[in-house]
Structure formats: structure tokens, C-alpha cells
Design a protein around this nucleic acid. Structure first.
Lengths: 117, 117
DNA sequence: ACAATACATAAGTAGCGACTTATGATTGGC
DNA sequence: GCCAATCATAAGTCGCTACTTATGTATTGT
């Protein structure tokens, strides 16, 4: 399954209504369209359209069960956006430089253990 | 200086033209409007309008020097967006859980050193 | 079988935002 | 002082998109 581009992710998440829907889905394990519509300030068709957009951005996935469709968040879909951000975070946060150092150490340990076997 | 909301950041970065301008500024230390216009596919006023939007989102800062205005990137402006993302990255990436572990260790070492003094 | 529920799709509308051209405001060179 | 250069702002236009209402498609209960 192909990942979404940072461009699509940003355009999808730029709308406050749609982002709120995503956040609510992420907060719960699974949610139905009806439950989402209750907390949204727009009509049910509007919610369905947002859900379609979120699906195309690989941010959520739907599971049909009888009359209800249960949606769950797929946070991994955010990865391209995270990668884009990381490129610029290096400029201001030592946090991520230290993380790379740490992960490299972890990797060496992993290799060491693998060699022993 | 107040930081921008994730909402404003996403809406600002959602436009491909504007994001390309930001990326080009971030690539160079400082750039003028004219140089940006040359590489953009839109007119100079359009570029200026995008620069204004990027400024309001605290993503760039301008320095006036004679007739030219030099713009530089302010990657720290991305921090609210990074914080927003991090909230969901915890769901799929062990990377950040390990980072927290690592930073806690660093913090303990720091405290230890402080106690010695 | 029929009515009701849950959701998706169709079609149309209205507002926003990204672009244009035109003009204004400063500055530098001559 | 004057013209050219650099950028910002004004004003208007056009397309996209988020919303609406109306309708379609399954599915469940009785």
C-alpha cells in the first residue's frame, strides 16, 4: 500500500473540521460515522466526505460491519509528514541529533548480539 | 513572541507554492524576494504574499537592507506542529518511546553531576 | 415484505484563497 | 533631482473546496 505524499497529508490535515475528526478517531479505538457526526458541527454527508479524504491520505481505514462502518486511525500514515518535519527539526532541536546517536548505539548492540549467535 | 498554532502552521504549509518558498529559504541562509521570485512559478507579488503568510506563521523572518529584504527561515516555528505529530507518532514508532527513555537517562546523569557540585 | 437505520454518493452553492495586474513606497546610482 | 530597482500593498478575478439538501444502497428488525 503506497504511502501518501507530505503534500497530500498537509492538505488533508489543513482543514480544522477534518483534522478534528481524525483526532477523535485516533482518540478511540474504533468509531462509527454516526458517533462522529454527533460531535461534529457539520452534517453526516460532510463527515463522510471528510472520512473519504482521510482514507485517501492513508490516515484512517474503514471496516464495514452490517449497517455501521467502523473507522480506526492509522497513525503510520503520518510518517511522510514526520520525515518532512524531521529535516527541519535538526536545525533547532538537539533532541533528534541525540536520538540518532542513541539509535546508532542500539544498532551496534543489535549487531553485536547477532554476531554472537 | 507568541508561537503559531498547529492549525495555522498546517494551513500555511498546505499550499505547495508557499511550502516550496519556505523550503528554498531554509536551504539558504538568507534570500531576497527577487531570488525567490526567479525560482518560483508565480509573480513577485504572489511571492510577497506568501512571505507575509509565512511570517505570520512565524516560519520566517525578514530583515530590511536598503532596497532588498533578506528572509531567513525560523525552523523553531515548526515546533507546535512537531508537538502535534509526536502525539500520534507514539502510536506507531518505538523511536520516540526510546527517545524518552534516552532523554530521561540524560536527565538523571545531569542531576547526578549537579549534585556533585 | 416493509419500514427504519446507517452510511455513501450526487448535485448544486457559497465563500475562501491563490493568483493576476496595477500602483505605491523606499532606496541607490548617476 | 531623477530614473531605475526592489519590494509591498490594493483591487479584482477565478477556481477549488467544504458545505448543504436530496437521493441511493445495504442491512436490520418486526
Amino acid at each position: 500500500m503506497p504511502a501518501a505524499t507530505p503534500d497530500l497529508l498537509m492538505r488533508t490535515l489543513a482543514d480544522p473540521t477534518r483534522r478534528a475528526i481524525f483526532e477523535r478517531i485516533a482518540g478511540a479505538k474504533e468509531t462509527t460515522v454516526g458517533a462522529l457526526t454527533q460531535h461534529a458541527r457539520v452534517s453526516q454527508p460532510a463527515v463522510s466526505q471528510h472520512l473519504k479524504a482521510l482514507q485517501e491520505a492513508r490516515l484512517i481505514a474503514g471496516r464495514r460491519a452490517g449497517r455501521c462502518t467502523f473507522y480506526r486511525a492509522e497513525p503510520r500514515g503520518l510518517q511522510p509528514l514526520a520525515a518532512w518535519l524531521q529535516q527541519y527539526e535538526r536545525m533547532w532541536s538537539q533532541r533528534f541529533d541525540r536520538l540518532d546517536l542513541y539509535l546508532q548505539q542500539m544498532q551496534r548492540k543489535e549487531n553485536h548480539r547477532a554476531r554472537k549467535r
